[in-house]
Amino acid sequence: MKHVLQFALIAIAVAGSALAPASASATAPELDFAKYPAVNAKRYVSYNYDNNGRAFFRAGGYYCSIGQYPGRVACKGFVATAPAGTQGVLLNNSQGPWWITPGGLAAPNIDLVPNAHFRAPVLPVKRSINIYDVTCARPRTHVVSCTSRGRAFVISPKWHKFVGPADVRNPNPPADKLPKSLR
């Protein structure tokens, strides 16, 4: 009887594990910031007064700025799925992500490059930077992803993906234009 009971418990455990999804909550590699070791953020901060203590990095054709305010990150560069005239993308702790266009809401208030001389270091591939409530990573050569308090963006020259609550103003491209991991 003891062996029958053990066999029944093993059968239930095996059946239960077969019904559970293998990776229902798997995070896309572009948004799995924990898998990318962080660089020394101090190298990326401009201490020039005109740059207001912002950090800057270059990655795969993008020039990114972190800071001036906690949780704020903006990247300048081309994204094929962005609206015409787009200069970059912006995200902060409580708003975005959204596109920065010459006539847009953030355009007069956002500096996408340093105001004073600062040679921004290149963020290496498969590395991240954590500073001012922001984490950015470079999962692949031409891909940049950034997050701040549950909001995120991933950009590449061919596509973009915005992650945030329902009030995110700018839509994502159709799923067939995204890599499989972000659909």
Rank of each mutant, 00 (worst) to 15 (best):
L9Q: 10
P21L: 06
A34H: 06
Y36L: 01
A24L: 09
A38N: 09
A15C: 01
A15Q: 04
A24P: 02
P29L: 05
A28H: 04
V14K: 11
V14I: 15
Y36T: 05
L19C: 14
S25R: 15
A22Q: 13
D32G: 03
P29H: 03
A20S: 07
Y36P: 01
L9S: 11
T27I: 15
A22E: 15
A28V: 07
L31C: 06
E30D: 06
A13V: 15
I10M: 14
I12G: 03
A11R: 10
S23M: 05
S23N: 10
A11W: 08
P29G: 05
I12W: 15
E30Y: 04
A28M: 07
I10W: 07
L31T: 01
A22V: 13
P21A: 04
I12E: 07
S23P: 00
A34P: 05
S17I: 09
A38R: 08
A18M: 10
G16R: 08
A38S: 13
E30F: 01
A13L: 14
A11K: 09
P21I: 01
L19S: 13
T27F: 00
A28N: 09
L9K: 13
S17T: 06
A11Y: 09
A20K: 05
A26H: 14
P37R: 13
L9C: 13
S23Y: 01
A8M: 12
P29V: 00
P37M: 14
A8G: 12
A18K: 06
A26P: 04
A34N: 10
V14W: 06
F33C: 04
